[in-house]
């Protein structure tokens, strides 16, 4: 599935933001145009895609966000919008008038929520988010980015019950932007994260909420019991790193936010999504020639060789290169060198 970035602006500042480099490096007024959106819709349809995600920045900032959602639905796509839920009153009213009649099977909002205690936000922010959840709750899947090992999930179960959200919790671990030094989960902290997640097992069961793991979790950090539990939910977990395929307002395409600097291309260079995925598969392969995974044990690991697990995300591997030995592939080395900390 491809992600369309409607804008590179955001109205929030999360401590773990791994889109920060992309946001900072782009034109703040950069907005996805109708011409480009129609081109992308044609491109994806011709690639056999029927699902699309809208991202930002904060996609709901785009003045024509509602129209874009309606257009993509009319083109036959199922649409997922990744939002922080901080919508102003007039935008909420637009959502109420035009989106609350859409089937919940076809339109989903993944609302990234932060722990109010660990990541406190101003009262007005919290208020706006709650008003959004009150309005669009049945269309919303909560999302949570784990950026410290002592995270809590209680507030999310509370939100699911209070606002009638979809009973699926999307969990991501925050990724390093190679060379950026942002807050992220280190390989050594992975087991602690998994244990913490598993400690919520009874609440997941009692509230009938299913956990969904985003990319970057290494399989070996789960016990067989933990894997068995995860496999009991619809859409069993995967541990592979793949291209998110992010398309920016200026029609650049890159692997994912943390790798937005790496082998970035123009969408116009490709004829199908398959070609783009192949381009980024080669990128991952080039990097994996250098290093098998984020742990020493990844080298020679059967699950790694069978491609059941990627041994962590490519961005985590590249982050090691930035501070460690240079790699052999000149093009990647050149891009890494730009991110290396000056001595």
């Amino acid at each position: 599935m491809a992600n369309i970035l409607l804008t590179t602006r955001c109205n929030r500042s999360c401590p773990y933001c791994f889109a920060e480099r992309e946001m900072a490096g782009s034109d703040v007024d950069s907005l996805m145009s109708w011409e480009n959106l129609i081109y992308i819709a044609d491109f994806l349809l011709m690639s056999g895609q029927r699902r699309v995600s809208l991202l930002g920045g904060e996609p709901t900032i785009h003045p024509e966000c509602v129209d874009y959602i309606l257009y993509l639905l009319e083109r036959g796509f199922d649409v997922t919008v990744f939002t922080n839920g901080m919508l102003g009153k007039s935008r909420r009213e637009e959502f109420r008038r035009h989106l609350t009649g859409i089937s919940r099977e076809r339109l989903t909002f993944v609302c990234n929520l932060n722990d109010p205690l660990q990541t406190p936000a101003p009262h007005t922010e919290r208020e706006r988010i709650e008003e959004f959840l009150s309005l669009m709750g049945p269309w919303v899947s909560p999302g949570f980015n784990i950026y410290r090992p002592d995270f809590t999930l209680d507030f999310l179960f509370d939100a699911i019950n209070r606002f009638g959200l979809k009973r699926h919790l999307r969990l991501g671990i925050t990724h390093p932007i190679p060379g950026k030094g942002n807050g992220f989960i280190r390989p050594a902290e992975m087991r602690q994260v998994v244990e913490r997640l598993y400690s919520y097992r009874e609440i997941f069961e009692a509230t009938r909420v299913s956990p969904g793991l985003d990319c970057g979790f290494p399989m070996c950090k789960f016990t067989d019991e933990e894997l068995g539990w995860l496999n009991r939910f619809r859409g069993s977990p995967h541990f592979r790193c793949g291209a998110a395929v992010d398309i920016t307002p200026d029609m650049s395409v890159y692997h994912c936010f943390p790798l937005s600097d790496y082998q970035r291309r123009s969408l116009f260079e490709f004829d199908s999504l398959l070609e783009i995925e192949e381009h980024f598969r080669q990128l991952r392969q080039q990097i994996r020639v250098e290093i098998a995974g984020i742990f020493e044990e990844c080298d020679g690991c059967r699950q790694r060789e069978d491609d059941v697990c990627s041994g962590g995300g490519v961005c985590q591997l590249l982050n090691r290169f930035v501070d460690e030995a240079p790699v052999r592939i000149p093009e990647i080395e050149h891009e890494i060198a730009k991110n290396r900390h000056p001595l």
């Binding site: 145009s33 109708w34 011409e35 129609i38 819709a41 044609d42 257009y71 009319e74 083109r75």
Partner: peptide, 10 residues
């Protein structure tokens, strides 16, 4: 011109 493309695409 954009609207024509949009309507056609629909």
């Amino acid at each position: 011109i954009t609207s024509l493309r949009l309507l056609s695409s629909l």
